[in-house]
Each structure stands twice: as C-alpha cells, then as structure tokens.
Amino acid sequence: MNAKKIVPAKNWGQRAIAVVLIAIVALLIYMVATSRHISWSTIPQYIFDETILDGIRLTILFTVLSMVISIVAGAILATMRLSSNPVLLGFSSLYIWFFRGTPLLVQIIFWFNIQLFIPSIDIGIFQIDTNVIVTAFVAALLALSLNEAAYMAEIIRGGLLAVDGGQGEAAKALGYTPAQAMLRIIFPQALRVIIPPIGNQTISMLKTTSLVSVVAAQDLLTRAQNIYARNFLIIELLIVASIWYLVMTTIASCIQYAIEQRLGRSAKQPPAVWKAALRLMRAEGRNG
C-alpha cells in the first residue's frame, strides 16, 4: 500500500550535453546530405568499380603478406633479443630502435628510392637494375613488413616472457631439446598472450597500407586517387574508399572477437597468465 515509486536522480548536466551532441550530429548530417558539392549518385556507381575492387584485393594482399613476414621476422628478432649473445641481442635491439623510431612514411619513400644509392644488384656475373627488383609493390611490402616486424618482435618477446620460467626448466629436466621445449611447451603458452595484440596490429595494418599510396603501389587509396585525378570527384571517391576500409576493419574485428572468445572459453590456463595477456594487450594498444 505504502510502496511509493522510486525515481532515480536525474543527471541534468549529462542530459544537456546529450541534447547538444544530437543537435551537432544532426546539423552535420544535414550539411553533408544537402551539399550540392557532393554528387551522391556517383558513390554507388564507384563502390563496385573494377578498379576499386582491384585496389581492395591489393590492400588485403599487402596486409596478409606483411603480417606473415613480420610475424616470422618478429619471432626471430624476439628470440635474438632474449639470447645471451651480445651481438644477436645488440642487432635485435638496434633494429627495433631504428624501425620504431623512424616514421613508416619515410621508410616507404626510402625503399622506393633505394636505387639512388644502390643502382644495381650484382650477383656473380649477373647484374640487375635495382628498379627491376624493387618495384613500387616490393618497396611498399618491404617497408610495411620490416616496420611491423619491430612491433611484432616486442609483442612476441612479451609473450615469451609471460610464460613462467619453471615451464622451460621442467621441459629441460624431462630431456626436451631446446627446440622441442620452445615449440611444444613455451611457444604454445606464449601464443595465448600474443594472439590478441596480433589481432589489433592486423586491423591497424589494414588502414596503414593506405600510406603506400605515396609510391602509387596500387592499393585501394591509390586506385581512388587515380580515379579522382581524372574526374575530380575527390570527396565521393574518398567516401567510397572509407566505406571499404570500414567494411574490412569491421570484418577483421569480428574475426578477432571470435578468436578471443574461443581463447577465453577454453580457459586451459591458470588465471594469472590470462591476466598477463590482457595487461599486455592494453600496453600494446597504447603504442600501436
């Protein structure tokens, strides 16, 4: 009888900000939608344009190849960085310092212009013009892979360090060779820590590949630029490219989410290691 309705406190400040935000977004949409300078009808016509689709294929190819190369190179660099040999350790540290410390854009332009100081590659009696080998495609792929390898090395090193030292000792004591211990005991456990940040890096790489358009490497952005150079539909083609980048990163995010759910569900790991994985993921998000 006496039960009175409970009214939660109203946060007037937040409500006011929400109203302002809605107004701003509505205004922006109105401005873009009614702009006479954007010809909306041309967008659907370019979305499935053969040139654009070719560009998407190349962007995916760049992403996949550079991720594969950088994971392999990163694993090697990480192992070197964890070794006790000062030369291996020094090389790996220097590599990571250099490739993380210079802008990727500079590295792309550098590889594209490498023939300026290495005009030809001599192998025995064979002499090949550097430009024949280092095409825009090769220059772009080299730059993306070598740069990404530096980040990957740190991700993999973090994963290897997150595995308890007792695991390697137990493997040794059971007579596992160093290679067996690494491949069967340490690496599978490090993988749980390594996979989430690799997912982040892959999503990031889908967008980063657009930088190779500066050397006209024929990725999605290069193709869009090529088209608008002829018909001046600049904003329209940038919208087309953005739609495709959003589609690709959304799909990649879904795949990453599915993989992480699976890793979390099987939970064959004591909670401590899983916590370390999440910690590392957050740390990688900051510098990635």
Partner: peptide
Amino acid sequence: MVFQRFNLFAH
C-alpha cells in the same frame, strides 16, 4: 626431477 612449484605444463 620434481620441482617445488610442480611446473606441470599448463596448456
């Protein structure tokens, strides 16, 4: 060898 902290392979 048997260790103080067991060191069973966690995976």
